[in-house]
Design a protein around this nucleic acid. Structure first.
Length: 589
DNA sequence: GCCGTTTTCGGCCCGACTGTTTTCAGTCG
């Protein structure tokens, strides 16, 4: 008895929402693949919905279960009796009988086959039944041997398509880091605006929502005659291959390996089309349900009452027709924003271009490529009023880290530079102090307290267990000289997960100590990520958005950091470097 | 499988594009 209770407790502590959500997604997927009855798609959808809900819960379902049992689970929307029982089973035993049975019946590699573009559940079923295709390798082999075309629905051409898609999937070109493709996206947007007859053009989709990575680019164009736009788009020099083209929609792959869609609508549908093409899908689905409940119908062409269009030209009027306040695209993830819109309580988010300073900037004195003065003048030209020079410290030898004496000398030079700089621009003496394995710092407190501002960061021992890593980070936060934790989770998007850390505990400690958490705006990092930024904002922990510039052109990264702050629902009051330097320093005292 | 100011049963978001379908299923966003 005791043993089983302990086992239960163990699972409670180890099953994260992402694990439970994965189980739900697998159940949904196998339901779609394995069952033919017309209701299967709705059961699958119920599983997917539950997965999404669980993934975005602020607290682990396992913890909620340990507190209130099944009853607690049933209070979660889109979780009913059957799914609650499965979650309970999973928390207690680490398995779900139904799922195991399905997996035994159709032993396919879900992770590999789910999400392969153009190959849906029905196709996967046919492939398994006819050719025993269980994974990507099987699929590739069957395609190469020309066996795919024996499956109904497949032709030689589709066989070739599958091979291309496998290649695309393998080379990891599925999702692109937004900062890497943003210039290209904007360049094409601009050239679409130049096409004769075009009234408006914008990259919608995840680009407009400013997600950290994007799957494809969704261009929306307003024009009365789609033909010339379609022609221009499919023949642009950036296009490698045209996948499809209808009267008002086209799909292409660009030479840079990213897919782009185009939709052309008349001006009177611009707003509804913009809403539709911006998404997220989940957000749009909710809007359409609201439309239905009001006796309306929402699609990309407008909001309709019967046959009559009652809104559609502007996004604002679409939301208004549904009884909702308009909201910034960065919030549209169906994560509570619709309820706020209903109550007219959408927060005023921190604005692009509203940052007055940048608190993580490197110079050539460590691993930067410009002098402090060049970084200062670059920041001024960019429109900032101050920067903090945060060169690395001595234990980061690779980056040419400074020791205490060198930091103090640098502070003296910064003071002299400030006298020389015109227009009230200010450079703050600072450092990106290295957090050691035990959470201590590599620079003495009697040096740190002479700097204007101190950031601390982890650059080593990434593989400590979560408890040790959390302790290490919170110990640094508790040092009264530390003002900011830089890039708090250490992740590199698409390259490195980041060290394991209990971010909720870090946020708790930051709240107690008044430590500020950074959103490092470098597009590789965007750390804190949107979700964690929102947790911090919710708890009242202050943020700063920094470029992590190693050259003056890197100040342009700040917009991606502001985007993450906005995705975290941060207002100007939540982001301290929207303040002038003197007020910022006062807050940090 | 979930859910209910029309319903505890019968719905479940909506439209475009593709292929070989000559009236629709599969897939996508």
């Amino acid at each position: 008895m005791l043993r089983s209770r302990l086992a239960g407790l163990y699972y409670c502590l180890t099953k994260k929402n992402s694990d439970v959500a994965k189980v739900m997604r697998d159940l949904g997927f196998l339901t779609e693949v394995g069952e033919d009855d017309p209701n299967a798609q709705f059961r699958a959808r119920a599983y997917y919905r539950a997965a999404d809900t669980i993934a975005s819960l602020p607290e682990d379902v396992a913890v909620m279960y340990s507190r209130n049992g099944i009853k607690g689970l049933l209070e979660i929307p889109s979780i009913g009796k059957a799914i609650a029982a499965k979650i309970e089973e999973y928390i207690k035993t680490g398995k779900v009988h139904t799922l195991e049975k399905m997996k035994a019946e159709i032993p396919i590699n879900i992770d590999e086959l789910y999400g392969l573009e153009g190959v849906g559940p029905k196709t996967i079923r046919a492939l398994y039944d006819k050719l025993q295709v269980k994974n990507l390798a099987d699929l590739e082999k069957a395609a190469r041997e020309g066996r795919l075309r024996t499956v109904p629905g497949f032709t030689e051409r589709k066989e070739q398509d599958v091979l291309k898609k496998i290649e695309f999937f393998r080379t990891g070109r599925g999702r692109h880091i937004i900062g890497e493709v943003y210039p290209l996206i904007k360049q094409i947007e601009k050239s679409l605006l130049q096409v004769a007859g075009v009234k408006n053009a914008v990259a919608a989709g995840s680009v407009r929502r400013m997600k950290e990575t994007i799957g494809d680019i969704d261009y929306l164009v307003a024009a009365s005659d789609p033909e010339p736009v379609m022609d221009f788009f499919t023949k642009m020099p950036e296009v490698q291959e045209v996948f499809g083209r209808g009267p008002a929609k086209a799909f292409v792959r660009l030479t840079s390996g990213i897919d782009a869609d185009l939709l052309v609508v008349p001006e009177e549908s611009w707003g509804s089309a913009l809403q539709y093409f911006t998404g997220s899908k989940e957000h749009s689905v909710e809007l359409r349900k609201i439309a239905l409940s009001k006796g309306l119908r929402l699609n990309e062409w407008g909001v309709f009452k019967g046959e009559k269009r009652v809104a559609g030209a502007a996004e604002e009027e679409v939301y208004q027709a549904l009884g909702l306040q308009w909201m910034p695209p960065e919030m549209r993830e169906n994560a509570g924003e619709i309820e706020l819109a209903r109550q007219n309580r959408i927060p005023k988010l921190v604005e692009y271009g509203s940052l007055k300073g940048d608190l993580q900037v490197h110079s050539e004195n460590s691993d930067g490529t410009a002098t402090i003065e060049e970084m200062a003048r670059g920041a001024k030209a960019f429109g900032l009023d101050y920067i903090a020079i945060t060169d690395h410290t001595k234990s980061l030898a690779l980056a040419g880290g400074l020791d205490g004496q060198e930091l103090l000398e640098q502070a003296q030079k910064i003071a002299e530079l400030n006298d020389r700089l015109e227009g009230g621009f200010r450079v703050l003496a600072s450092a990106e102090v290295n957090i050691m394995k035990d959470g201590s710092l590599d620079i003495a407190d009697n040096v740190l307290d002479k700097l204007d501002i101190v950031g601390a960061a982890i650059h080593s021992h990434f593989n400590l267990p979560v408890e040790a890593q959390t302790e290490r980070l919170t110990r640094a936060a508790k040092n009264p000289n530390v003002d900011i934790l830089f890039h708090p989770t250490g992740r590199l998007i698409n390259k490195r997960l980041g060290y394991p850390v209990d971010i909720e505990q870090v946020i708790e400690v930051a709240k107690d100590t008044g430590t500020v958490l950074e959103i490092d705006a470098h597009y590789d990092r965007l750390d804190l990520k949107d979700e964690y930024a929102r947790m911090a904002v919710k708890k009242g922990v202050k943020l700063v958005v920094d470029s992590d510039a190693h050259h003056p052109i890197h100040y342009a990264f700040l917009m991606f950091g502001v985007a993450q702050a906005r995705r975290g629902w941060a207002t100007p009051a939540d982001v301290l470097n929207t303040l002038p330097a003197d007020r910022l320093l006062k807050v940090l005292k």
